[in-house]
């Protein structure tokens, strides 16, 4: 397999036609991937928090849900008005700490916020592995639409999303 282009915390990566995108060790963070079937391009942000609270959002838009979604559209070069042709994949948003007294529910709020933002743009979520209590890593193969999600102490989930993402299979 080609080297994985990893999005670290708050970072964004993208690839067109080929390549592998992924995140390692998503806790309450959410790997947010948008796919454009028309250009066969995928862009991924490692979202840490629901909304921006400081100037930081200008420097690292990938860090916050509210700034990451528009930044991903810019990376894909798709205007918001045409965003409905995109497909979304969400991974992460777990709550790793058991019986947290002051429930901050960052993971849950990340997932909720992203869903809201995506539905406003009429972007369908075609695959989601979110919430729960475990950390996750994943890889997405841009050419084939294959996704693989790993969590500690669980069997890896592997799925072919080519149909859902509108990836046309080339005749052999």
């Amino acid at each position: 397999m080609a080297a994985v282009k990893l999005a670290g915390m708050g970072e964004m990566v993208w690839a067109r036609g080929a390549g592998v995108l992924g995140c390692i060790g998503l806790g309450s963070c959410v790997g947010t991937l948008l796919f454009d079937p028309r250009t066969h391009t995928a862009a991924l942000a490692h979202v840490m928090l629901p909304e921006a609270h400081d100037q930081d959002a200008f420097a690292t838009p990938g860090k916050y849900a509210t700034t990451a979604v528009p930044a991903l559209l810019r990376l894909l070069d798709v205007p918001a008005a045409l965003a409905s042709r995109l497909k979304a994949i969400l991974i992460g948003g777990g709550e790793l700490f058991h019986n947290r007294s002051q429930a901050l529910r960052i993971g849950e709020r990340n997932v909720e916020t992203l869903h809201k933002l995506l539905s406003e743009l009429r972007i369908g979520v075609v695959f989601e592995h979110t919430r729960g209590s475990s950390g996750r890593s994943f890889e997405f193969v841009v050419a084939t639409g294959q996704i693989r999600v790993r969590a500690v102490g669980a069997t890896a989930v592997e799925q072919d999303l080519s149909a859902a993402l509108g990836i046309l299979r080339r005749a052999a």
Binding site: I24, G27, C29, M48, L96, F97, N99, G135, V152
Partner: peptide, 13 residues
């Protein structure tokens, strides 16, 4: 609160 998981997932949380 207790956690046991991948180091980077715990630390980033």
């Amino acid at each position: 609160a207790f956690a046991a998981d991948m180091a980077i997932a715990v630390l980033s949380s």
